[in-house]
Amino acid sequence: MKKARKIPLSGLAAVLSLGLMALAGGQAVGFDAPEEVTLDQMADLYEPVEFDHAAHIELTEENCAVCHHHTTGETPVQARCLHCHATPQPAESVACADCHPQNRYAASYLRAMTAAPYRYHTDIVGLKGAYHRLCLACHQEEGAPTGCQECHARTERGDRRFHAGAYAPAQRPQAAHH
């Protein structure tokens, strides 16, 4: 078995572009894709997620388009995308973070989305939204885990934020009613 490499999110783009070069050279899809990706966007409230990329490549039967849309050069899954991306070329980057911004609501980003006159993609979800919406929808459909903490355990700060665990409120009579 190949040893799993752990690649932080920021390093993902570089690694995946290697994969794409391999792809262009006629190699198997996902040949050089990372085996594991560390998702640590919400590390203050939740432990980082070690995303098993390799396992998900198997689960999607090597159809990268299930998650990567048209960027890997495969035909997108959603009919809506076919209007423009029916015969896509591999994109420069397939890293989620390169299209789905970490800071979705930065004033500069909001401006850029609406300032360009003919821009079509003006409603792109941020990185956190992209992961959750994609992952959760599939997990629901496939009967995979869907509870928040089944993917990422809360940190102590997270427990404090949710008033849960060691920070749970003392039980009061009629607690649910106020």
Binding site: C148, R161, A164, P169
Partner: peptide, 8 residues
């Protein structure tokens, strides 16, 4: 503080 945890 809420009456119940926010994950309840």
């Amino acid at each position: 503080e809420p009456d119940l945890p926010f994950d309840d």
